[in-house]
Design a protein around this nucleic acid. Structure first.
Lengths: 195, 195, 195, 195
DNA sequence: TATGAATGAGAATTCATTCAT
DNA sequence: CATGAATGAATTCTCATTCAT
């Protein structure tokens, strides 16, 4: 009910939740299992979260935040209007995080349309990517990329990354640098304006 | 027990199942609701499917089949090695189906990693897209597209369509021809080999 | 509803019922299975019996009747008050039937206290053994056997036969003549009056 | 999942289960009723037993154990090779328990061939009566009883007791000492070797 | 009569949530 | 705060019975 204190425990719960969804699918997510995986009692879960939905929503938000943080983690000093430089940095930031934490990608994708996450929460987490939106709008207005809705542009940039991660499955380490560079090239090519 | 007879009833069940998932999210899928929506008794469901999982798997397979059928529905007479022509036909086939039946897209995407669909079934349904794989492998060997794994290429082509559909949500009719053409252009651009 | 005609079909149903109880236990008795085993449609069962209970009761009655008929099947011409002769004949009649039709024994024993057979039906079938009761009462009054309730005497005579059949299980053919004679001897000994 | 803790609750469940079978017949055994009768929630039943079958099997085992314990409860100091003394003690131990707890007798007899108890469990519970088997084998080898299979001897001794209990039904108190002594006499007489 | 797919009431089982310790 | 056994509403699944053909 009140704000929980123990951030370390929240971390454990979140990790446990993600791990189970990854293993069993979100249909196999049981509160008792989350507790056991987190090394706490079932009842303790309810000290931190009032119900299952609020737990899932919070883990979803946390994970989206991680994704956004990772995306913007490293940004080169903007030497002039260096669109390509920033684009590349962010894109590689993101795919790197995705490769290191495929579970995060899978988790958010699986829950997005599960019926667990209310539309307002989705809107809220989308705001975390605001800087990217702004960046793309600017680029579009400067004629640097195709004159399409930024949502579509983002889909074009991110969806292949997600699918790549999903397709790799257990063999995530198989994704080599050549592949990554290839996917980047596709992303970059795809948004170039028509001459 | 054995294979059921009434194909018309299977159709009703399948449609009902998809409609509910679309409305309530996967999480809200109840056998009783599927039956009611299909206009049959709960017990009747169990004449056609031994349990919930086998129902979901079958609806998944049927839907994947619809997607594949839609993709390959119209293929222009291959005037020589007309890669672009076929590519374009198939791509437009697919997005057209996706726009007309967004529920099909959402359904399969949501179930893929729900924990309900065993890996073997996923492999099985992937085979339905075999002609596309072959087509891309040929193109790759002919140097017409980037030398990347076909799974990645497919992700690059299809994922944005799926995401577009998801993003559109209820306002699927908003997707105008200009947008479609833009997305096609992105798809086409993205797989071009580096000069 | 009305009296069914086809006695041959009733026989099939009865046999099917017994066979299933023998294989699956009475807990595994399903109307659909009885029908299939009898080679008729489920609905047809309901032409002959209004519900499951009346089917089971009828099969029970039929089987009890078979047992009684077998018991009294062969009775030697009563040369005077030949108690031993008749006793022996009847006892061997009964065990012979039990060995030839162990399923009948198992079936009636299992259903007796299953909650399916109403007390009045049990009383009714007990009447089939009336001649045996009379026979024992006479013998008791003549001081030929122990002065105990005939129900107890009957139990002493029949229960070991039933248990022998149950214990033999699948290997019913294992019961050799020496064993049969031994069991008879026990039966006969046990009811002798104290000198 | 694993072994439950609260032995007192197991006792309640067991008793409730037996009481219901006695009242309603095996066929009327419902998990919800067992729970209610035991004074616990339905779900609690599933903390102690994973499903209905495992509950029934455990109650069966417990009851068989009670029977065996009762049988061997009082054994007189073996004054020499006092076969008769021990035999009599055990026999009276058993019938006394049967009269005091007719429900136990009825319960095990009804479930034996219900299809719920796997053959291996029956074998397992039979081992509880090992001492009786050994006792009878010794006696047979010493020529004190008939040279028949011990299973048959046991049937001869126990089956009439069971049938007596069943026949008495609700009026179990009717069984008077004279009857008991008579049944014992029959048992004893029946196994005497032929002179 | 005969059929067997369809029905739906009812039973087994699950699992989010509570609460006594 | 922490615990985990207990709860019981909700859900899946079964199967005796019906009924259109």
């Amino acid at each position: 009910m009140s704000k929980p204190k123990d951030e370390r425990k929240l971390e454990l719960i979140s990790t446990a939740c993600i791990r189970i969804v990854l293993t069993e699918g979100f249909n196999g997510l049981r509160m008792a299992d989350v507790a056991k995986e987190a090394g706490i009692a079932t009842g303790t879960l309810y000290i931190y979260y009032s119900d299952k939905q609020s737990l899932v929503i919070d883990v979803f938000k946390r994970t989206k935040k991680e994704l956004a943080d990772a995306l913007f983690a490293f940004t080169p000093a903007p030497a002039g209007n260096d669109f390509f430089g920033i684009f590349k940095s962010w894109w590689y930031n993101y795919i790197q995080f995705a490769i290191n934490h495929p579970d995060r990608i899978l988790f958010t994708d699986q829950f997005l349309y599960s019926g667990f996450i209310p539309a307002e929460v989705i809107l809220e987490t989308d705001l975390l990517f605001q800087p990217l939106d702004a960046f793309l709008v600017n680029a579009r207005e400067a004629g640097l990329i195709l004159p399409l809705d930024t949502e579509i542009i983002k889909a074009q940039l991110m969806a292949p990354i997600h699918t790549l991660i999903k397709a790799a499955g257990k063999n995530i380490e198989v994704i080599d640098q050549r592949t990554i560079d290839g996917v980047f090239w596709m992303a970059w090519q795809s948004i170039q304006p028509q001459k």
